[in-house]
Amino acid sequence: MMASILAVDDSASIRQAIKIALAGEGYTVAEAGDGVEGLSKAGAGGFDLIITDLNMPNMDGLTMIRQLRTKPAGAGVPILFLTTESDAEIKAQAKAAGATGWLTKPFDPQQLVRIVKKVLAA
Rank of each mutant, 00 (worst) to 15 (best):
residue 19 K to L: 05
residue 19 K to A: 12
residue 19 K to D: 13
residue 19 K to P: 00
residue 21 A to G: 02
residue 21 A to Q: 09
residue 26 G to D: 12
residue 26 G to N: 13
residue 26 G to H: 11
residue 28 T to E: 14
residue 29 V to L: 14
residue 30 A to W: 08
residue 33 G to R: 15
residue 33 G to Y: 05
residue 34 D to T: 05
residue 35 G to A: 06
residue 35 G to M: 07
residue 36 V to P: 03
residue 36 V to L: 15
residue 37 E to N: 06
residue 38 G to F: 02
residue 39 L to S: 01
residue 39 L to T: 10
residue 41 K to D: 04
residue 42 A to L: 03
residue 42 A to T: 11
residue 43 G to S: 06
residue 44 A to M: 13
residue 45 G to Q: 05
residue 48 D to L: 08
residue 49 L to A: 06
residue 52 T to F: 00
residue 54 L to D: 04
residue 55 N to F: 11
residue 55 N to E: 15
residue 57 P to L: 04
residue 57 P to W: 05
residue 59 M to S: 02
residue 59 M to V: 01
residue 61 G to A: 10
residue 61 G to Q: 00
residue 62 L to W: 03
residue 62 L to R: 09
residue 63 T to Q: 15
residue 63 T to E: 15
residue 64 M to C: 10
residue 66 R to Y: 09
residue 66 R to D: 01
residue 67 Q to L: 13
residue 67 Q to N: 14
residue 67 Q to R: 13
residue 68 L to I: 08
residue 68 L to H: 06
residue 68 L to D: 00
residue 70 T to S: 12
residue 72 P to R: 03
residue 74 G to K: 02
residue 78 P to T: 01
residue 80 L to H: 01
residue 80 L to Q: 03
residue 83 T to V: 12
residue 84 T to A: 15
residue 84 T to G: 15
residue 85 E to D: 14
residue 85 E to Q: 14
residue 86 S to W: 11
residue 86 S to I: 11
residue 88 A to V: 06
residue 91 K to C: 03
residue 91 K to S: 06
residue 92 A to Y: 04
residue 93 Q to I: 11
residue 93 Q to S: 13
residue 97 A to W: 02
residue 97 A to G: 07
residue 98 G to N: 06
residue 101 G to M: 11
residue 102 W to D: 07
residue 102 W to K: 12
residue 103 L to A: 11
residue 103 L to K: 09
